[in-house]
Amino acid sequence: MLKILKYSFFDLMRSRWSYVYFIFYLALGFVLLFLNNDLNKAVITLMNIIIVLTPLIGTIFGVMYYYNSKEFTELLLAQPIKRNTIFMGQYVGIALSLTLSLVLGLGIPFVLYGLFRSTAIFDFSLLLVVGSFLNFIFVALSYNIALSTDNKIKGFGYAILMWLFLAVIYDGIFLISLLLFNDYPLDKFSLIATMLNPIDLSRILILLKLDISALLGYTGAVFRSFFGTSLGMVVSLLLLSLWVILPVFRMNRKLRKKDF
């Protein structure tokens, strides 16, 4: 598996898109810090970008890589290697290279601007952790979609739809249901609804670490007592891991029965 991981990883590292992605984050980091020297504010702006963009890039990269390397994968399948070894290697390779672009792209400008001397270091590292999680989650989800659909166009369509659903539509439905059931106690509902969507969960996790956490306390004691504590943090991170594990698990099951 390591060999395949290494292969996909270096294949992607050599590819143009990885560089574009890396340079994009690098430029973003520098521009943000250039425009306002305050690390804390830059972290807030970055959060807005990361929770939308990382999933999108992860989704597209995942689907694209699967379809592009399909022939090579089929060649590999002819070799005496376990199926899930091949695909897990590819999956980890993609997710890792994307994460590396993210971490290095954002890390370099922030470190140059004095991250280690700033109080924002914890917020920033949380941002990177959450960003990496999102990478792993969305690459896994898109691999699932690609494995289930042989038609390239359909696969792309479903993948984009999935991103659109989790990033935008889910929140829309969530908001409408909050407005509709206004007369009922909604604290628990909103807590659970937030945790079920990895993008929402990441957003809340970062917001809580910024000063806006007290603002959330306004919605009720439930939110405050849950997300405000380290238990909330642990549970949230566990849920994010679950969002990685479940798609990977399904991927492996799908692989076993799939006819190439």
Binding site: D171, L175, L186, D200, R203, I204, T219
Partner: peptide, 9 residues
């Protein structure tokens, strides 16, 4: 309660 959606897309 809608405040949980703060800063979402």
């Amino acid at each position: 309660e809608a405040l949980v959606l703060l800063r979402s897309l």
